[in-house]
Design a protein around this nucleic acid. Structure first.
Lengths: 263, 263
DNA sequence: TCCGAGTGGTTCAGTATATGAACCGATGGT
DNA sequence: ACCATCGGTTCATATACTGAACCACTCGGA
């Protein structure tokens, strides 16, 4: 593995649950020698990507990431556009709405909004990476990925997270055909046992999938009526988002969506 | 220089003015061999720090920086706290307010807010790095930096940006004594000829300077009354920000500020 | 139509650069 | 007093990085 990849992997160790970590801890988690880890962290620190805080000299993410994120938002304002839309989706459906983006072959949580309505709701803050085969967002993305990328994903082992998780690649492929014919993806209890969710894919200007928009509800609340409302709102939001953000929806999917909105 | 440093430097090539760049262009700007640059960008891409967009295969910042920025904000909510405060400052003073943070030995723009009031105002969007000797924010930070770091900054050449820029290290040191005795820094026309600004330093939980809060006005609008109002609002905002964010203001400075607020 | 000057991207020998075991001194618990 | 941590450093070893030269392609003249 390249040195740069190791350094960047170090940045991936941080999470909401673990906002700061010590040198030895980082080395252990990343599987690096302590000296190597120290040098890498040093280089990251020199550029402001991490900083050392407190008496324990723990490392945490630095201000450089904020600056870069602001630049990314200036170049590709997906997040800024999506946040109000997520709030609206959460409001209209009464369930948790979230946005994920394809990042280095993984599907990762980018933003989310909770409904005011219910006391119980699906929480998103602790979810980092969404598995392709076990989530509606993952299926939505996977269905519209180029075959090569799809094959790469399905070549990996597909862990069974719950007893309802589909772990056979061919069965997943069958689900993808379904997704493409419906224009949206659905998954019930395959990621978390009590969660039922619907998702639609998002595209960039070249028509490549970039992520997914989804709404997740507790299984026990997911009635037929709610399913329909979520699907409609989701498609409307995705059309708007793809439109505003210059996303090029594949013609057949666009046709499906238009049909769904009329019916 | 380490490989990682080179890769991170590559990320610094992006700016609002240059949101995307080609391979050759990046190599040229970073002073790297094209092959090396390609490999580094490849590693950054594999982790989602950059992505290739469009038919021209230009590179731009990727979604990974958004995720990391969200984590940084969760750990150190400086920006979230500061933004509303900046808006208020801009509103109360009628001038541009901005926040900068110390990052790898440089002082960089993090956030800003414009006043609704005036048609002419100081623009911040294109300013990236603030020079220590030529800006009020820089002086405010420099005054409270540990001597070693301060010496390092003053050992570098101090470019004269305007005819009012102080480029003699000793003269700058004299200004810093002034800053420390006043509790805020001021600079008129030393960064941009038509800009007059005031700034106060911000601190972390260990009492180390982390950045500055500043208000900048066109020189021709900066009357004595406005100066006084800006200074008061700035100090009030800094006290609040340091307080909320757990920043430990050095005792003598805290005393100065309290005195200024009473008088 | 051909040419030259740009692209983005790849190869591979040579060497600069990263690596990791062993080592500090400090701290904290038993 | 001991042991097990911690963050950080050293230096001989060898691995992973470098860069000149090379593709194939596109574009705008001449």
């Amino acid at each position: 593995m390249g040195t740069v990849a190791k350094a960047l992997e170090l940045l991936d160790l941080f999470s909401r649950a673990r906002p700061a970590l010590g040198l030895s801890e980082a080395a252990r988690l990343a599987g690096l020698n302590k000296a190597t880890c120290h040098r890498l962290l040093g280089e990251l620190q020199a550029r402001g990507f991490v900083e050392q805080a407190g008496a324990a000299r723990e490392y945490r993410l630095g201000p450089a990431v904020l600056r870069l994120a602001a630049l990314r938002e200036a170049a590709v304002p997906l997040r800024a556009m999506a946040q109000p839309m997520l709030e609206r989706l959460a409001d209209e459906t009464g369930e948790t709405a979230h946005l994920s983006a394809l990042e280095a072959g993984r599907l990762r949580m980018l933003a989310w909004a909770y409904p005011a309505e219910h006391v119980t709701r699906v929480m998103m803050a602790d979810t980092d990476t969404l598995l392709f085969h076990a989530t509606s967002s993952g299926l939505a993305v996977l269905a519209y990925l180029p075959e090569a990328a799809r094959a790469a994903v399905l070549a990996e082992p597909l862990p069974r997270l719950t007893e309802r998780t589909e772990s056979d690649p061919d069965a997943v492929r069958a689900r993808l055909v379904e997704v493409r014919s419906q224009g949206h993806a659905e998954s019930a209890g395959s990621f978390e046992a009590e969660v039922h969710s619907l998702a639609v894919p998002l595209f960039d200007t070249e028509g490549a999938v970039t992520g997914a928009l989804a709404v997740a509800a507790p299984v026990m609340r997911m009635t037929g009526a709610l399913r329909g409302r979520i699907r409609d709102r989701l498609i409307a939001a995705a059309m708007e988002l793809n439109d505003q953000g210059g996303g090029a929806v594949p013609p057949d999917l666009a046709a499906l969506w238009r049909g769904a909105m009329k019916g």
